[in-house]
């Protein structure tokens, strides 16, 4: 376990499952034994506005907010939010844009959030098994199969396109 803090920003529009995805990520990090903090502003998120959520984990996390321009990973669920949030990523950080997992390949479009978490998971120091536990814990049982599949699709894409994904580093 490294002593540095891992900084992940999840972004999208209200109703896309940004907060749900960040809850899953934070829970996975807790289950993996990290100190975790998570911050978001969700006052008006239900009205379709932009939503971002910061998840930070490591041995010890201080501020709940990721300093601007210091995110290691940026996971974006809506194409319109990519340009807006890109400056939050540090040089060399990894961007997962919404088309990283093509919508057409998903059984249910609504699991894009979990699919992108799957992609992200390939880069994190959290075992896959633990990640999946967190996915299941956060969702109703009838949604488990679809979301586990989406998670695996994202993870496989990240593994396969490892080089391509690295090429996307900012």
């Amino acid at each position: 376990m490294s002593t540095t803090v891992t900084n992940v920003i999840l972004a999208g529009l209200g109703g896309q499952g940004v907060i749900k995805a960040s809850d899953i990520l934070a829970d996975a990090a807790v289950r993996a034994g990290f100190d975790v903090k998570k911050a978001e502003v969700h006052g008006m998120s239900q009205r379709g506005g932009s939503v971002t959520s910061d998840v930070r984990f490591g041995v010890k996390v201080l501020s709940p907010m990721i300093p601007r321009g210091e995110a290691d990973f940026l996971v974006v669920l809506s194409p319109s939010e990519v340009v807006v949030t890109r400056p939050l990523l540090r040089p060399g950080g990894v961007l997962f844009a919404p088309d990283f997992v093509p919508e057409a390949e998903l059984v249910n479009k609504r699991s894009l959030n979990v699919a992108l978490l799957g992609a992200l998971s390939a880069y994190l120091d959290i075992p896959e098994r633990i990640f999946l536990e967190a996915v299941r814990a956060a969702l109703a049982e009838r949604l488990h199969a679809v979301n586990e599949q989406a998670f695996q699709q994202g993870r496989a894409r990240a593994a396969k396109a490892g080089a391509a994904a690295l090429g996307k580093r900012q």
Partner: peptide, 9 residues
């Protein structure tokens, strides 16, 4: 970052 503002459903 100035994202999309909220709007009436």
């Amino acid at each position: 970052p100035r994202g999309k503002p909220p709007e009436l459903c």
